[in-house]
C-alpha cells in the first residue's frame, strides 16, 4: 500500500501556491494535515499528479480573536484549536474531542476537514450550526463562502480547484447562549453515525435564535431551518423540543450504509436533536457548565 508516484511542491508564498493550483487544476491535491488525503494516497484511491503541500506556507497558523468571531488560519491543527477552545469556546472543544484521536488531531487541520466535506464529520456540522464561513483565495482574488453554500454533496464543496481556504471564521455564541453537541459513533473516535449540534438563547423565558445542525444523515450537514422556525419564540418545553425534532427528522433524507440504516439515522437524529437542544436549553438557563 504505497502511494502512486506524484510530483511534490511545498510552496512558501501564497502566490506560488495559487499559481500551482491554477496551473494544475484537477490534477493537483492540496496537502494540509494529510489525515484524509494520505490514506487515500496509500490506498491509491487518490492519484493526483501533483501534491501541493501547504504546510510550509507562512501566515496561516494563527487563531485570531475578533469581537464576534474567531478566525482560524488554514494551518491551525485541530488539536491546537481544541486546547485553545477549552478556555473560551466550550462548544468548539466539545466538538473537536470527537474528531478522530489525539494523534490525528495533532496533524489534522480545521480548514482541511471542512474542505474534505465528509457529511459525518464534526467540523462541517459545527460550521453550519454556527453560520460560519471560510475565506477562499485564488489568483482571481478572495471570497467568503458561507457554510450553507460551502457544502454541496458527499465529499464535495463549492470550492474551485484553483481555490485555497486560507481562513475559517467561526462566530462566537451570544452571551448567555447555551449549546449542545452530541453524536453516536460505532467506536470512540469514529465518524459519527449521526450527530447533532444545537445552540439556543432564551429571551423572556422563550427560545430565541435557535440553530441546529444534524450530521451523518444526508449528503451534507443539514441545517434544521424549519424546526428552528417552529422553536423560535416557544417556551423551552420538552414538548416543543420534541415537536421540532420530529419535524427535522421527517425532513431528512439519510442513506443506509454498512454501519447504519437510513431509518436508524432518521430516528437517532431526532433523539440526538432532542438531547442536544435539552443540553443547550439547560446551559442557556445557566444550569449547565
Amino acid at each position: 500500500m504505497k502511494p502512486a508516484p506524484f510530483a511534490y511542491h511545498a510552496p512558501r508564498a501564497l502566490d506560488e501556491t495559487l499559481g500551482l493550483l491554477a496551473r494544475h487544476g484537477d490534477e493537483a491535491k492540496i496537502l494540509a494535515g494529510g489525515q484524509s488525503l494520505v490514506p487515500l494516497l496509500n490506498f491509491r484511491l487518490a492519484r493526483p499528479a501533483v501534491v501541493v503541500d501547504i504546510n510550509r506556507m507562512s501566515g496561516l497558523g494563527e487563531i485570531r480573536e475578533e469581537d464576534r468571531q474567531i478566525a482560524v488560519g488554514a494551518l491551525v491543527r485541530q488539536r491546537r484549536l481544541e486546547v485553545w477552545a477549552q478556555q473560551g469556546f466550550p462548544l468548539l472543544a466539545d466538538a473537536l474531542r470527537y474528531v478522530g484521536h489525539h494523534a490525528i488531531r495533532t496533524r489534522g487541520t480545521v480548514a482541511g476537514s471542512l474542505a474534505h466535506a465528509d457529511p459525518a464529520a464534526e467540523l462541517p456540522a459545527l460550521l453550519v450550526c454556527l453560520e460560519g464561513s471560510v475565506v477562499a483565495r485564488s489568483p482571481a482574488g478572495h471570497r467568503e463562502v458561507r457554510a450553507r453554500e460551502l457544502f454541496v454533496s458527499h465529499l464535495t464543496t463549492s470550492l474551485r480547484p484553483d481555490e485555497l481556504i486560507t481562513e475559517v471564521r467561526l462566530p462566537r455564541l451570544h452571551t448567555g447562549a447555551g449549546w449542545g453537541f452530541l453524536e453516536v459513533a460505532r467506536r470512540h473516535g469514529d465518524f459519527a453515525l449521526v450527530g447533532a449540534a444545537a445552540v439556543v438563547s432564551l429571551a423572556d423565558g422563550r427560545i430565541a435564535e435557535p440553530r441546529v445542525a444534524l450530521f451523518g444523515c444526508g449528503a451534507t450537514p443539514v441545517r434544521a431551518s424549519r424546526a428552528e422556525a417552529i422553536l423560535a419564540g416557544q417556551p423551552p418545553t420538552p414538548e416543543a423540543v420534541v415537536a421540532a425534532a420530529r419535524d427535522a427528522a421527517g425532513a431528512l433524507a439519510p442513506e443506509s450504509d454498512l454501519h447504519a440504516t437510513a431509518e436508524y439515522r432518521r430516528r437517532v437524529a431526532q433523539t440526538l436533536m432532542v438531547r442536544a437542544l435539552g443540553l443547550a436549553i439547560g446551559r442557556a438557563r445557566g444550569n449547565g457548565p
Partner: peptide
Amino acid sequence: EHGVCGACTVLLEGEPVRACLLLAVQ
C-alpha cells in the same frame, strides 16, 4: 497504513503523529 491502528505513532516535535500519514519530505 491508513492511520487507524496507531502502531506507527511517533513524536513529531514532541507531539504524537501517525508516521504512515506523513510524507518523509514533510
